[in-house]
Design a binder for these strands. Structure first.
Lengths: 233, 233
DNA sequence: GTGCCTACTTGCACTGAGTGCCACGAACGC
DNA sequence: GCGTTCGTGGCACTCAGTGCAAGTAGGCAC
């Protein structure tokens, strides 16, 4: 067997395993420092390896790519979300369960505020990193869509709703987190996320025309809810 | 000036310009063929260049990267969306304007059905392409958020709503297009998209608990929500 | 036509990411 | 102790992407 073991083993049993974890942490730390200091694409893998005092080759034994150093925690986060969602009562409506799971996850973000801020700073200067990060989020979408479909007892390949729910919900989460990071992580994240989800769940239409739930100065006339249809280009 | 001219010049005036367009088309065609035949990451830039009968170096004069051959039309599509949105009456509510703009763009997709299907097939086998594609969509989000904010007369850096509207709307569009492609582009795309947007605008909560609006295949005015409900896989 | 300018092409050399392979040495299980 | 397993390092290789300098051909004078 090829050993499907990376961070999923807990115990620090054995000198070897402990050394492995130390090396991984050293590489990650070195990479973050260097990226922050000089910028992602100026830093080479050799630089990182040298700083962590291992060989270039070893770096690629720990991380699949240079980008991966920054995104290695995605699988763990997704697992958290899965667990949170699976932990909700079986008969709870899909949307309620999803909201709770996401809010609980958002709560966890606050504990990693600084780390996330550092990463956001690096990413803001490096488009290709955003690309990878978004690719990971697509995996989240699939996972969430499947779980939502299961709760709704529908087939996600036939019914659009689970997909739309997953995609729009995670998109809103992303916007809220981005806003949080842009404000230096000062606002209460779960509150921001809850506001975004409220807007979504209650209907964008309502959210925009009514007196806003969100902190915007409303400037919009309460337009009719008639949504002109047809249109066949 | 450095010549900000690539595909934005229309006229085939001049032998040079015509030759340029021919080369670009040849490269794109060669790349698509090879990707479809052998798979994206097995094909090298040398292969593509050879097939199009130009040098490797020339390839990179036309496309910034190997991935770019497949995604080169993103800027054009974004421009289409911008134009469609800007073309809506100034006093139209933001959401209505956005819906019309998106539906009109979705209409255009049907004309490129085959091309989009080919591309989707290639992308389905290549995660890194998805990544880039999603990165482009983030640019769309920013553009849409700004335009929505302008219509709402709010500051998008302060008010979450434009960002949430843009992100969730485009995410839903993406889901609808994905579903359309997964069904071989057979359903009427604007209908699918309209259904996804209905779900969003009317509120996810309503959309899920009430009688469902969605389930592809039916050509039906999204305004008329009257389809059974729930179903088991 | 001749000649010049401009733009497109090409080959070359170079950096850096990522991978396969093999040999070495240290931890592990007994 | 012993052989085995596993992490590591070094080497060589492929390929994406870029800078540079020289060649070539269209465009536009005159």
């Amino acid at each position: 067997m090829v050993s499907a073991r990376r961070s999923d083993q807990v115990g620090g049993d054995g000198l070897r395993e402990r050394h492995r974890l130390r090396t991984e942490a050293a590489l990650e730390h070195a990479a973050l420092r260097l990226f922050a200091e000089r910028g992602f694409d100026v830093v080479t893998v050799d630089d990182i390896a040298a700083r962590a005092d291992v060989s270039r080759r070893t770096f690629f034994r720990y991380f699949a790519s240079k980008e991966d150093v920054l995104l290695a925690d995605h699988p763990r986060r997704l697992a958290d979300l899965r667990r949170a969602l699976a932990g909700r009562p079986e008969d709870e409506p899909a949307l309620t369960a999803l909201r709770h799971a996401i809010l609980s996850m958002a709560g966890g973000y606050e504990e990693e505020r600084q780390r996330l801020l550092d990463r956001a700073t690096i990413m803001a200067r490096t488009p290709s990193l955003h690309a990878r990060s978004l690719a990971h989020q697509r995996l989240w979408e699939e996972a969430v869509a499947d779980m939502v479909a299961e709760r709704m007892r529908v087939d996600p390949t036939v019914d659009l709703r689970p997909g739309v729910v997953a995609a729009s919900t995670l998109a809103s989460l992303r916007v809220a987190v981005a806003a949080w990071l842009a404000r230096d992580g000062r606002p209460h994240l779960p509150t921001l996320v809850a506001e975004a989800l409220d807007l979504l769940d209650g209907g964008l239409e309502q959210g925009l025309t009514r007196l806003s739930a969100l902190r915007g100065r409303r400037r919009q006339s309460p337009a009719a809810r008639s949504t002109p249809e047809e249109e066949n280009p």
